[in-house]
Design a protein around this nucleic acid. Structure first.
Lengths: 206, 206
DNA sequence: CGCATAGTGTACCAATCAGTAAAGTATTTA
DNA sequence: TAAATACTTTACTGATTGGTACACTATGCG
């Protein structure tokens, strides 16, 4: 196996960044070449089917990262509550408090949705399912856990949109703060009923 | 003033649709021409600065629609609680339960963000501010109203992303359902001060 | 060494891109 | 009706698009 300078896998991080920043249509081969430092020849050597294959490779890597860093701990962590907290922290780091776009979310909104529909769907289903599993292990009702996890994943996506729109990472961080409250064990209605929660405990910020 | 067949304003609805479906970069002049039924000559006659001006016109119209149908009732409605409910219903209709993308949200995530930063920011700030105003008139604490309204707007954006990703409008509708609960007066155990209470409009405490 | 394979650089392609120019047609206004 | 204005059509840019072809170099292996 001949190894010159680059490996296929080395390019994927750069590819991810360029697709995040410019979208599928906006990321031209010129831009991609600049971002990866690879010429067209190399790019088509590594990804014979062009941009589509590049995006698929990026999606696969993203999926792997989330599987290892988020879904798996959520599903299998012994301390479900700690796993939830860890998810929120990892997510904040990963999306850089909303400064970094979620490629999967961006693709879901673009008209390229159909091309990657399966991968997009898989990403979000895995996330919601894993989170639900942790919430159930916290002692919650299955139905409520479903609703809550769907709501949490959706809030993270929305937080990215809004914090970018307002150009304010604090928006993202406040949203994560809300989720910490909503997903924590003390909010599951067993320890402290939501209706009995003192007003001051809702706003820990600023 | 010579009027042939089309007016500038007639094109805007089609323009909005084509930008929603294909994004700023993805909406080529060929596509735009097909969607509006206008040739390049006419398009550049109405929008001398090209795509950028078209998007600005669309954003202005969107802003106007939200101002009239959402923000203004939220700010000035006598029944704050009814205004909130109406906002959620109008929003569901407008975004067609997540089947229709929010152009402003999509632009906020794309790399074209900087071009339209001011309009994007204005749209979301107006929304959050108007909602906060209604929540305060419901009798809520200003700080909590701020958090809640930010959270609600962000949830709507996230609901669009997730429901599209899962290709399931029910996801959007569930999210709106959650918001109905969170934003209703009966939630959070708030006690509406007599001064802020519109006569006879309070839903009895659950 | 020498050959196969892996990876690269460059020139090229047809198609499409946003945008321009200008001649032509409709419509209003005077 | 005639001139002015509003709009449309068509043809045309030069640049860029994604993608191909192929000669080229580097590297690993026997």
């Amino acid at each position: 196996m001949a190894r010159m300078v680059a490996e296929r896998s080395d390019a994927i991080a750069s590819l991810a960044e360029v697709f995040r920043e410019h979208g599928y249509e906006g990321a031209s081969l010129a831009l991609i070449g600049k971002a990866t430092g690879l010429g067209k020849g190399s790019l088509y050597h590594f990804f014979p089917k062009g941009k589509e294959e590049m995006v698929r490779a990026v999606l696969a890597e993203i999926d792997q990262w989330f599987e290892d860093s988020v879904y798996s701990p959520l599903r299998e962590g012994t301390d479900a509550n700690a796993a939830v907290t860890s998810m929120l922290d990892e997510t904040t780091k990963y999306f850089r408090s909303g400064r970094r776009v979620c490629l999967v979310g961006a693709l879901a909104v673009a008209n390229t949705r159909d091309l990657f529909a399966q991968a997009i769907r898989g990403y979000f289903i895995a996330w919601v399912d894993a989170l639900q599993s942790a919430l159930v292990r916290q002692g919650r009702d299955v139905e409520q856990a479903r609703l809550l996890s769907e709501d949490a994943v959706l809030a993270i996506q929305g937080a990215i949109v809004l914090s970018r729109a307002l150009d304010d990472p604090a928006v993202f961080e406040r949203a994560i703060g809300q989720l910490h409250k909503r997903l924590g064990v003390e909010a599951n209605g067993i320890v402290v009923p939501a209706t009995a929660r003192p007003e001051g405990s809702i706003t820990p910020f600023r």
